[in-house]
Design a protein around this nucleic acid. Sequence first.
DNA 1: TGTTAGCACTCAATAGCAGTGATTGCTAAT
DNA 2: ATTAGCAATCACTGCTATTGAGTGCTAACA
Lengths: 340, 340
Amino acid sequence: MDLNSRKFKILQAIIDDYILYGIPVGSRTISKKYNMGLSSATIRNEMSDLEELGYLEQPHVSAGRIPSVKAYRLYVDSLIKSGVLEGTSSLNLQSYFNKHIKHIEDILSHATQVLSELTNYTALAILPKDTSEKIRNLKIIPVTKDTALLILVMQSGSVYNKVIRINSGLSVDTLNHISNLLTESLSNKNIDEVSGVLFDLIKDLNSNRDFLIKLSDSIKYMVNYENHNKLTLGGTSNIFNYPEYASVEKAKSILTLLDTQDELVELLKQYGEMQFTVKIGPENGIIGLDDCSIITATYSTPTNARGTIGIIGPTRMPYKHIIQILNNVSYELTNLFDDN
Amino acid sequence: MDLNSRKFKILQAIIDDYILYGIPVGSRTISKKYNMGLSSATIRNEMSDLEELGYLEQPHVSAGRIPSVKAYRLYVDSLIKSGVLEGTSSLNLQSYFNKHIKHIEDILSHATQVLSELTNYTALAILPKDTSEKIRNLKIIPVTKDTALLILVMQSGSVYNKVIRINSGLSVDTLNHISNLLTESLSNKNIDEVSGVLFDLIKDLNSNRDFLIKLSDSIKYMVNYENHNKLTLGGTSNIFNYPEYASVEKAKSILTLLDTQDELVELLKQYGEMQFTVKIGPENGIIGLDDCSIITATYSTPTNARGTIGIIGPTRMPYKHIIQILNNVSYELTNLFDDN
DNA sequence: TGTTAGCACTCAATAGCAGTGATTGCTAAT
DNA sequence: ATTAGCAATCACTGCTATTGAGTGCTAACA
């Protein structure tokens, strides 16, 4: 027994119906609504086979059947193979943004907002992390007697800042001097080059050794960790639109996850390797998220750094529709950055 | 008929019991558990009076009674009068923070986290807004041909940054020049003085007029609006700990509110006028938030700018406990800033 | 006059139960 | 290979009876 074309058609009909109504689908429904030219009894036999093959599940014996994760997976794979990811964007994301020039953080926050409105699911995204991005400018501004502010501006316009402790022996002029020296020697260098450059500088200067080492660490820390462990969220409360999360425990578990962020950030980072991912139910690997699907796409900045944007929702999800929207949004997002 | 001391004692017992268990309280419960030395019948009579006075409500005739907003208000007022706000903090917030020097944003975010864990409610806070805060440093860094980054550092170490459009006629050197000039003339000035200083500068320079005006607007915008319209949240999913929000619509409405932020930000700003506020149920004035209480306290930074931190939860709330915790947290928070 | 015991009454909540209907699996006929 | 027919299953619905926590009222009591 294998999955012939008739079985596939029936399975598809069941998935479509279940996605639409969210209640178990019976043989009679398929026979009548999806005019297959087959009686309910025949469908019944096929459904029994499909269950044996692992594509369908039965909540209880007198209920209809619901698609399994395996079925969704088949469905999504065939969708993607059929070219749902192609086609130009009918969406003009640009029009959703006002004309102010914005930071990437603002753009992304806005994009998740838009995405959540378009899909009615919760949207989530992470900022791109670009180790090859070049430093543009560096400045050390004294704040108190023994603290200063380290400000780092990247070529893309990203700004990082961090309070650092300074040796009280360092005068404002010295700091200014170091600041200028560093801007000069670090500009157009990327993060991986910082250590090397500072090492050379230490040799030349032969003073302020500890301070420069600490600076180097701070710079690396800022660029590598700050911002890149933070989820951008949109439409958090959309979760409640679905009967799957009508029970408070379910909703709580997912909202706690969104609150905690860490696990999801890791997931998105991981997914960022792929242009497009669809993780159905337990495929995402997070315990307690077995009945959620996560769909992600990557977007890129002009410097070719890649971030991830996606949505999270119940396993029962109009995959085709959502995939198209997400595809468009990530495409438009990339465009938007190019223009800016 | 007025609220004599016995009635008050009974009312207090009812409130205590209801806060603890969340189910309507009957006369027998009070008579037995709170050994008043009175029979249930007597309590019954008193409860009937209390209902007439507006302190109690009956969900239905054969249920017990629950405290009204008026009752909670009386209870909280008497708590505050009895000096619950005094007494030193037994809490050492400092120990919750690691030893890294942090930005105020990080500290506040951490503080809401701690507060939500201590109270089991959702904590919310806004950053202080200090119009008297002085500018320390200003820098304009070109990013693309026609955009630049405006970076503003305040005396407190707060950093604002914004992408601005520049006239392509402006060279890097000119920008640098303007940047230095502005740092010189604006440092130690507060926001209200920016317009005046720039006006004088325009007269002297007699060029780049439009650019300087735009800069002045940008500066004012950054300091006045950025950051100050953003809620810092902690323990969002704590809402689900309470049977009051077991229904999904309830939970959804409050989470949507937290999502939207605007209304709550306005509220907190307004409450910032007071050292301490307890708004019970409809007293907060937000529609759809009739059955939530909001308790806030102000904290202050070394420059005497005041921010607001608080919690939001169901009307049934252990006010005494929460007020004490919040009082301690705001006190410790203020201390923390002083040390830093 | 305030307090209390007693009692009838109310009503939400719960449990039990029968009926309904959607759906299945199996069998026998086509 | 397909289908009609049928018994069996079982969640769901709606009805009824029961329970029990609670009230208000009245009459007796200190």
